[in-house]
Structures are given as C-alpha cells and as structure tokens.
C-alpha cells in the first residue's frame, strides 16, 4: 500500500517529510493550473506558499486535502504522498483524509450555529467524544488554543456568525483544531481581516506550528516572513523556488522571486 519514492530521497529526509508532492499537474478543463510541482513539506513547521495571484498556490493547497474534487472538470496528475501514501490513488478515502488535513478558508465561514456547535461539529461527526463533559473539554481546549476562549466563554450559545471577522476566523481555526488534524491548510486566512485581527491570527499561526504542520497560502510577503520557516514561490503554475524563509527573502536564487519579493510586480 505504502509507496515511498526512494530514488532521490535519503532516509533522513524521508523522516522529515510529512507531505511529498511529486510532479503534480492540475488541469481545469483544458487549462493547466499547475505544472510539474514537486515539493516536500516538513512536519511541525509553517510552510508559506507565495506568488502573484493566479500562480497556482491556492490550487496546490487545495490538492493537499483534495478540495479540488469539488470543482467540476478538475483533474490532478502526479503523486501526492501523505506519510508516504498517495492521496490520489483510487480508493483512497477523502473524508478520512480531510479529518487529518484541516482547512481554514479565505473568508471566515462559520456555520450559522452557536459558537459551541461550530467547534463541536467535527468531534460530533467523527464521534471523538464520549459524553457531554468530554465534548465540553474539547470545545474549551480548541477555543483556548485558538486564543478565543476568553472572548467567548460567556456566550458559547451565541451565533458564530455574529462574531467580528477576526473572531470568526479564529473560531474557524478552533473548529479545525477540534478535529485534531496533523496538518492545517490555511488559504489566505487574513485577506478579509483588518490589521489588528491579522496580527492576532499571525501570532496564533506562530504558536500552532509547535503542534501542527501548517501550510499557509498568503499574499503578504511580510506575513510569510513573520510566520513561516519555509517558503515556496509559485509563478504561472510552476514552483520556481523553495527553501528556508530566511534564505528566500535575503538571497533568492531566482530573479523572478527577487522581483516579486522586492515588490516589482505581483
């Protein structure tokens, strides 16, 4: 079952790789959105995906939990290994995949339910809690980890949709954490938020990397620089460069990367 490419990956590198993309191509109908993307994502790190809009970074992110399945005419070719297992092989279970790979979306999308029910949604469908008190505990710890507990502990029965934008996004992060995923995908989680709320989410991302592997798509170079350890630069569907965030921002190898991060286009 488990397929591991051993050709160009040493044993130690393998141990440090949680997701390995190998020559991934994505097509929307006739349009090729991703070309031959290969990248290893390391556990318990924040990997930022940057690049100008339309470069394929969000498309790549959506491959990692197969959200692209929901898009009509979308076709993925290549290998995407999660802990060595190809998540696109026939018969691979997507629901199971998505419980291990959580996702936070561009626009906060809390369910029109209470704050409590939003966080409890995942544990409930996955039957993770035995009894109410255990579920209460899960909700509390998820909200605490998302840094939202103190603000909402007195109004857990209030609607999630009535929180402010930044709080909604943290609620969505809490909701994702509650499922206890190993990986959290974040698709421009701050693009709809004001600078103060953005700051709080960035702090949160920085803290969460201790327990989770985070893949973050962002528009903002500063955000990538502040929060990530590794950065990948996408351009026109190709992965041009990947490396330590410090290296990418100080001595980019590719001239386009440099042009982008210095703000000459994007």
């Amino acid at each position: 079952m488990v397929t591991i490419e051993t050709r160009d990956a040493s044993a130690s590198a393998r141990a440090e790789t949680i997701i390995s993309a190998q020559k991934v191509n994505v097509y929307y109908g006739d349009f090729q959105a991703l070309k031959e993307v290969s990248i290893d994502i390391r556990p318990r790190q924040v990997t930022a995906l940057i690049g100008p809009s339309g470069c394929g970074k969000s498309t790549f992110l959506r491959c990692l939990n197969r959200m692209n399945d929901l898009i009509l005419n979308c076709r993925v070719v290549g290998k995407l290994l999660l802990n060595g297992e190809d998540i696109h092989r026939p018969g691979f279970d997507v629901v199971d995949l998505r419980t291990h790979v959580g996702m936070v979306f561009q626009k906060p999308n809390p369910f029109p339910k209470s704050i409590y029910d939003n966080v409890a949604y995942g544990p409930r469908i996955h039957k993770m809690a035995n009894g109410r008190s255990e579920l209460d505990g899960m909700v509390e710890s998820s909200l605490r980890r998302a840094g939202l507990w103190d603000e909402v502990k007195d109004k857990l029965a209030g609607l999630g949709t009535e929180l402010s934008g930044g709080q909604q996004q943290r609620l969505c992060i809490a909701r994702a954490i509650a499922v206890e995923p190993k990986i959290i995908l974040m698709d421009e989680p701050c693009s709809a938020l004001d600078p103060v709320a953005t700051g709080r989410i960035e702090e949160l991302i920085f803290e969460l990397r201790r327990d989770y592997t985070i893949v973050l798509v962002t528009h903002s170079m500063q955000q990538a620089a502040r929060t990530s350890q590794r950065t990948a630069f996408f351009h026109l569907g190709e992965l041009l460069e990947v490396g330590d965030t410090n290296d990418i921002f100080t001595k980019p190898r590719h001239e386009r990367t440099e042009a982008y991060i210095t703000g000459r286009y994007g």
Binding site: D93, V95, D96, I125, H126, K127
Partner: peptide, 10 residues
C-alpha cells in the same frame, strides 16, 4: 477504514 467511517458512508 474505521467501522465508524464505514457506518457514516453506509
């Protein structure tokens, strides 16, 4: 696949 997940699919 866990039995719980099988039940959900069923």
């Amino acid at each position: 696949m866990s039995t719980h997940l099988q039940k959900r699919y069923r």
